[in-house]
C-alpha cells in the first residue's frame, strides 16, 4: 500500500490561510488504512484547524467529505455535486490522489495535507516499512525477495558493500539490516547462491519519465 503521514499542523494551517470556505477531502483507500487520511483523520484535522483559526478570530468554514478512493473518477460523483461553493480543497490522499483531485477541479486551489512517504507494508500496528521503489523491472526473484534498490542504502545490484557490520547491519544505521546480508543468507539457505555469483550488468532505469500503462486488452479501446 501507499503509506503517508500528516504534514506538520502549522504547514497545513498556513495553506488554508485567507480562505473562507475549505473542503477537506479524505480518502478511503491506502491513506485511510495507514491511519493518515481517512474519515477519522479528516475529522481530527478539521477540529484542530477550526480551533486554531478561532483562536485567531479568523472566520473560516472547514467541512469534511471522504470518498472511497481519490485515484479513480468513479468515486467522484458525489464530490462533484458539493464542491462548487468551496474556495479551496485540502486532500488527505497520497500524492497521486491529490493530483487527481487537482486535475478534476483545475480552477480550485488544491492542497496536500499529507506527505506521501513510500510503498510499504505494515510491520505492526502503526509501524510501516518501505519495500518497493516502483522501478518497473522487478528483480526479487533473483534476490530472494529482498529489494536491493529499496533496502540497500546505495541501491547496489552487486552487493554487499564493505560496510556491513558484524551484526549484519547497514553502515548508515545500526537499526537497518543490510539488504545484501539478508539476500546472501536467504539464497544460501535456499541453495541458490549462483543467482548472485555473476556480475549483474548496469541497469536500465525505466522510471525516469512519467509512467502510463495501458493493459493489452484495452489497447484498441484507447487507440488514438
Amino acid at each position: 500500500m501507499i503509506v503517508a503521514e500528516r504534514k506538520p499542523f502549522d504547514e497545513i494551517k498556513e495553506m488554508t490561510k485567507g480562505f473562507k470556505k475549505v473542503l477537506n477531502v479524505g480518502c478511503g483507500g491506502c491513506t485511510s488504512i495507514c491511519m493518515a487520511g481517512g474519515q477519522r483523520e479528516v475529522g481530527l484535522l478539521n477540529e484542530e484547524l477550526k480551533n486554531a483559526w478561532a483562536q485567531e478570530k479568523a472566520s473560516i468554514q472547514i467541512d469534511a467529505f471522504t470518498i472511497e478512493r481519490q485515484c479513480n473518477a468513479d468515486f467522484f460523483k458525489e464530490l462533484d455535486q458539493i464542491v462548487k461553493p468551496y474556495e479551496a480543497i485540502l486532500s488527505m490522499a497520497c500524492g497521486a490522489g491529490v493530483q487527481f483531485v487537482a486535475d478534476r477541479y483545475p480552477n480550485k486551489p488544491v492542497f496536500p495535507a499529507l506527505n506521501t512517504v513510500f510503498v510499504g507494508v505494515d510491520r505492526d500496528l502503526g509501524w510501516f516499512e518501505e519495500n518497493c521503489r516502483t522501478c518497473r523491472e522487478c528483480v526479487l526473484g533473483e534476490t530472494a525477495g529482498v529489494c536491493p534498490l529499496t533496502r540497500c542504502a546505495k541501491s547496489l545490484f552487486n552487493g554487499p558493500c564493505g560496510g556491513t557490520s558484524r551484526e549484519g547491519n547497514c553502515e548508515v544505521s545500526k537499526d537497518t539490516p543490510c539488504a545484501w546480508f539478508e539476500i546472501y543468507k536467504r539464497l544460501k539457505e535456499q541453495n541458490r547462491l549462483e543467482n548472485i555469483l555473476k556480475v549483474k550488468p548496469a541497469r536500465e532505469w525505466r522510471n525516469q519519465t512519467r509512467g502510463t500503462l495501458i493493459q493489452e486488452a484495452f489497447k484498441t479501446r484507447y487507440a488514438k
Binding site: L156, G159, G163, A202
Partner: peptide
Amino acid sequence: LSGDHQQFGNHPLTKGVFDIDSIQLINM
C-alpha cells in the same frame, strides 16, 4: 568504488546517485 553514503558527509540530505555500482563501474 561505491563510495561512502552521503549521510556521513557534510551534505547529508543530497540525492545519492548510485546509477551504477562499483562492479558495474569496473566493467564500464
